Simulated assay, not measured.
Amino acid sequence: MVELGVSRLISFRYPAIEMARTERMIRQDDPQMYELALPLTGDSALIQERRQCVVKTTEFTFLSTSRPYECRHFPRQEAPTTAASAAAQPPTSKTIAVLVPQSAIPLPQSKVKQLLARPLPTEGMASLLAQFLLQITTHPERFRATDAGRLDGMALDLISATLAQHLDLESALPVEVQQQALRARIDAFIEQHLGDVDLSARTIAAAHHISVRTLYRLWEGEDTTVTDLIRRRRLDRCRRDLQNPLLASQSIYAIAARWGLTEKSTFARLFKATYGTSPQSYRQQQPAPGPQR
């Protein structure tokens, strides 16, 4: 479990399991939480509010601790390929989930109730939420304790935006949540189009149906701009590729061009200004790959 603040992230693996939360349990203790769970393997089903949801591994399921529910999870049995695999441990399922207080979601609970026990495909904001949860639960060591507050805010904004998108209530969200959701979409767009030579503030704004001025306003008060962000990420991808021994046969400028930096002199100047050495020297400083075994 990763405690971010008001939100909790959980990654767990389990054999076949069936659970039920009854009215009596709720009367005894109700933390009044919402849970969004994303099964990564196996088959799952949830019953709540007289609705039954069969969940695929490409879908979130959504439940409330304040209402009775039943859920079942079954690992998918793969056909053994060898005698050793047939004698191996029984299969397990894996799920990641995030729990947040119901009071932290700035949407009417009467509306949110409509999503209980319904599959939420990992598209749009749900796709960004899935990537966010996977990144933190898979590599918690990459984050510092001081990052918790910022990550907590991001989790709440992504969850709120995901639910609002499925309810067609995005305009009902607070302005700051809408802005954070828009930034998350823009961030994902930049990642997907880093290799596009034409990627710029203008093309990003056009793709998201906003003005360039509005786009730059999203980064007001920070030490970076959209243009700086694109440049830094492109240079970082080039740096990683120059470290990769599997790409040693590729020319430096072919690597730069793959990440949208097509001007040789401009790339060399930016790389040296950022990393203190030329791309050629940086590549030469990397340790030689070990012998093949």
Rank of each mutant, 00 (worst) to 15 (best):
I186Q: 07
Q192H: 02
S160K: 00
T22V: 06
Q178I: 14
L173D: 11
L133S: 03
S251L: 13
V6Y: 01
N244W: 10
Q284W: 05
L158D: 05
L99Y: 06
A201C: 12
T65Q: 00
S7M: 02
Q250W: 04
D147K: 07
A207G: 03
K272E: 12
S44L: 01
P90A: 04
S160Y: 02
L134H: 14
R142C: 13
I252N: 06
S103R: 04
P101G: 05
L242W: 02
V212M: 04
T92A: 06
P291L: 12
L115G: 09
H208N: 05
Q292A: 14
T82C: 15
A257L: 11
Q52F: 05
I96P: 07
S211T: 10
S265Q: 01
I47G: 12
Y282R: 06
L63E: 01
D152I: 00
R72W: 14
P108E: 02
Y69M: 14
I136G: 02
E222A: 00
M1R: 01
K272W: 08
S66I: 07
L115P: 08
V100I: 02
L218F: 12
Y275M: 03
M125P: 03
L261F: 04
L194S: 04
Q179P: 08
Q292S: 14
D147C: 10
H166T: 03
H209T: 01
L163C: 09
G276I: 01
R293C: 05
L229F: 10
Q286I: 10
Q250L: 09
R213V: 01
G124I: 00
P289C: 04
A254L: 02
S110T: 15
A86S: 15
A20V: 15
S66Q: 09
D236G: 14
E18Y: 08
S11K: 14
R27P: 05
